[in-house]
Structures are given as structure tokens and as C-alpha cells.
């Protein structure tokens, strides 16, 4: 069944989009990530213009984050104070990101920049995760208990000034890295259309030493607001949010997430992380190929007068 997307201005198949949402929702439920980093590239592969894929991706991330946060609130695994400081940084980062987004779009370099960011970030995160999970898998095969870094270990981050206490995270840390992390994620969120969970979660765990059980809830909490802000600014400055597209993806996504969460319970942590790493790397490689392969058409047309 075809449907005409009002903002993307192309006809697409409803079932393809629902299936895409469901598949990504399944994976996001299974791995506990927002799924924005999969949705946006998938939309681009499906010929949705990158500018619209990014803005709509940010919109779709809100839905999956909201349902995730609700369950973390119930369990009490959410640090509102830490989330709010991250958010303050996030708003600044998003504003900068949207400005850069508009600028690149006028210069005709937006598509390239989005692809490059995806290749670099997904490649790095996927590669690191794969190495880490393979090591963990080997360790368990040898029968040794997996060695976790102890919290309370300090690094350079903990020597910075302007310290603040975050009770729920049992953390006493400078606000500078927290604001900086928020700003970085906000920037990426507005340019890549992702929530940024796949960077936020490892950064909170390894850089700030936040206990793992509060990390996902807190990260999702701040992602809701960063993505909401990103969506709003994209809607007002670039008019690139397609609600019809976003809604189809969300509808598929919320259903798929529940089945994914169930399937995830049957797999072990290291196996899950290795699978996710392979998935992330596959997306990165697919995008990288497009950068290097000679495009079928060297010339492209675009309208003048955007912004």
C-alpha cells in the first residue's frame, strides 16, 4: 500500500516503513538503545532525503525513549539531577548543531557530512564494542569471571573543578565533563538524527563512572528532551520533520521493542554486545561503501532559497 509523505514529497510503501520501524524497535528493545542510529541510515537507503531522514529520526527517537523512561522511572533507576545537567549542555549543543546543519545544507555538503559522521562514529563504537565483547566471550569460555572495572576508580575527569553531587548516581564530579558530554550528544543528535545513546551510555559508564543500572534510564531521560528540542528546531528552521513518516516508524517501533526485549532476555550480555557491534559495523561499512563507490550520477540538482 503506497502512501505519499507530505514533507519528503515521495510515495513510499506503508508496510516497508512499519516493518522498518518494527525491526529497529525489536533491535532497540533487545539491546536497550534508542535505534536512531539505525533508523536514519535505513531511511537514507530507502531514498528519503537525508535532511528529512535526520529530522524525522530525531522525532521518532522521542517515542522509544518515552516508553523506555517510563519503565525506568518505575524502577527508580533514573538520576533526574544528572539528566538535567546533561540536558542543559544538550540544548547548547543542539542549537550549534542545527546551525551547522543549515550551513552545510546551503553549501551542498550536508549529505556527505552526515555519512562521514555515521561512518566514523559507528565504525569506532562498533569496533570498540566488538573487541570488548569478544574478549569477554573468550574470558567466559576460559571459565574466568568477567573482570569489571570497579567504580570509585578515578581518572583525570575527577580532578576538574566545579564539583557537584549526584545522589542517585552516588557521584561527586565536576559539572564541566557532564555539560560537555551533553553538548556533544546534542550536537550529534541534531546533525545525525540520533538520540546519542550509543555514545552516551559508554561515556557515562567509563568516563564518569556512573553505576550501570542508572545509566540507561538517565540517558533516555535526557535524550527525550534533546530530541524534542532538535525536532522543534528542525521543524521551525528547516521544515524537514515528516510526521507521517515518523508516526509509521513509531507505530512499528513500539510494538517491535517489546518482542525485542523478550528475545534479549534469552541471550547473554556479551553475546548481545557482540551482535550489536556487528550490526553497528555493518551499517558503518554500508555507508562507507557509498562514499567511495563512483555514484551513478555526478550531478545533482537542488533548490535555492532554503533558509
Amino acid at each position: 500500500m503506497g502512501i505519499y509523505l507530505p514533507i519528503a514529497e515521495i510515495s513510499v510503501n506503508v508496510f516497508v516503513l512499519l516493518a522498518m520501524g518494527a525491526a529497529v524497535g525489536f533491535l532497540s528493545g533487545m539491546f536497550g538503545v534508542g535505534g536512531g542510529f539505525l533508523i536514519t541510515p535505513l531511511l537514507i537507503f530507502y531514498n528519503i532525503p537525508p535532511a528529512i531522514a535526520v529530522a524525522t529520526g530525531a522525532n521518532q527517537v522521542i517515542a522509544s525513549s518515552v516508553s523506555g523512561v517510563l519503565s525506568h522511572m518505575k524502577r527508580g533507576t533514573l538520576d533526574f539531577k544528572l539528566g538535567s545537567v546533561l540536558l542543559a549542555g544538550g540544548v547548547v549543543g543542539s542549537t550549534g548543531g542545527i546551525y551547522v546543519f543549515g550551513l552545510l545544507r546551503r553549501l551542498g555538503q550536508l549529505d556527505l557530512f552526515i555519512s562521514l559522521l555515521y561512518v566514523v562514529l559507528l565504525g569506532t563504537v562498533g569496533g570498540l564494542m566488538l573487541v570488548e565483547s569478544i574478549n569477554a566471550l573468550r574470558a567466559t569460555r576460559r571459565g574466568a569471571a568477567p573482570v569489571l572495572k570497579k567504580s570509585g576508580q578515578h581518572n583525570w575527569v575527577h580532578r576538574l573543578p566545579l564539583k557537584m553531587r549526584f545522589r542517585a548516581s552516588k557521584l561527586f564530579v565536576s559539572v564541566i565533563p557532564v555539560l560537555g558530554l551533553g553538548a556533544g550528544i546534542g550536537f550529534l543528535s541534531s546533525i545525525m538524527g540520533v538520540g546519542g545513546g550509543f555514545i552516551m551510555v559508554p561515556a557515562l559508564i567509563y568516563l564518569l563512572k556512573v553505576p550501570t543500572n542508572v545509566v540507561i534510564g538517565t540517558s533516555l531521560f535526557q535524550i527525550i528532551f534533546t530530541s524534542a528540542y532538535t525536532t522543534l528546531v528542525h521543524a521551525t528552521t528547516n521544515q524537514t520533520v515528516d510526521v507521517m513518516l515518523a508516526f509509521l516508524l513509531m507505530a512499528g517501533g513500539v510494538a517491535g521493542a517489546q518482542y525485542g526485549a523478550k528475545a534479549g532476555q534469552r541471550l547473554r550480555g556479551e553475546q548481545l554486545r557482540a551482535l550489536l557491534a556487528l550490526l553497528v559495523l555493518a551499517v558503518a561499512i554500508r555507508l562507507a561503501i557509498d562514499l567511495f563507490v563512483t555514484p551513478p550520477n555526478l550531478y545533482s540538482l537542488s533548490a535555492v532559497g532554503l533558509n
Partner: peptide, 27 residues
């Protein structure tokens, strides 16, 4: 989306939040 872009943005966000909330209720 073009004439009332701010309201449109607010609508898009609300739609996402409600979908997320309903998804949680239903599933």
C-alpha cells in the same frame, strides 16, 4: 509545516510522546 512550523513541531513532539506512552501501556 510551512505556515505554522512551531505548532507543527510541538504537534510532532506530542505525537511521539503519546505514542511512546501508549506503546508502554499496551505492551
Amino acid at each position: 509545516a510551512h505556515d505554522y512550523s512551531f505548532l507543527y513541531g510541538v504537534f510532532a513532539i506530542s505525537l511521539a510522546m503519546i505514542t511512546g506512552w501508549l506503546g508502554r501501556l499496551v505492551f
